[in-house]
Amino acid sequence: MDLFADDSALMPIPIEDGELWFQQRLALDLAPPEAMQRLLDETDWRAEQVQVWGKLHMQPRLTAWHGEASYRYSGKTFHPLPFTPLQLHIKQAVERATGRQFNSVLLNYYRDERDSMGFHADDERELGPQPAIASVSFGAPRTFILKHRRLPKTIKLALGDGCLLLMAGSLQLHWLHGINKERGARGPRINLTFRQILREP
Rank of each mutant, 00 (worst) to 15 (best):
M58G: 10
L39Q: 04
T77S: 06
T43V: 07
V52S: 11
G67V: 08
E68H: 12
M1E: 09
N108C: 10
T77P: 07
W53C: 11
G169E: 05
A93I: 00
I145E: 14
K55C: 07
T63P: 00
L107H: 04
A35W: 02
R100Y: 13
F138G: 07
L86E: 05
R61Q: 07
V105N: 06
A140S: 15
G169T: 05
S8Y: 12
R38E: 13
L26P: 08
H174W: 14
P80T: 03
F144T: 08
H120L: 05
R72G: 10
E126D: 10
R25D: 05
G75R: 06
E95G: 04
S137Y: 01
Y71K: 08
G178K: 02
D161Q: 00
L30D: 13
M117E: 03
H148W: 08
H89T: 12
R150N: 11
H174P: 07
R61S: 08
A31M: 06
H148K: 01
H177Q: 12
E16K: 13
D41I: 01
A140H: 12
Y71Q: 03
I145P: 01
P201I: 03
G178N: 07
A185M: 11
Y109K: 08
F144S: 09
D41H: 11
E124V: 11
R46K: 14
F119T: 04
N191L: 00
A35P: 02
R38D: 05
L176Y: 13
I190C: 04
I13Q: 07
R125C: 11
D29P: 01
P33S: 02
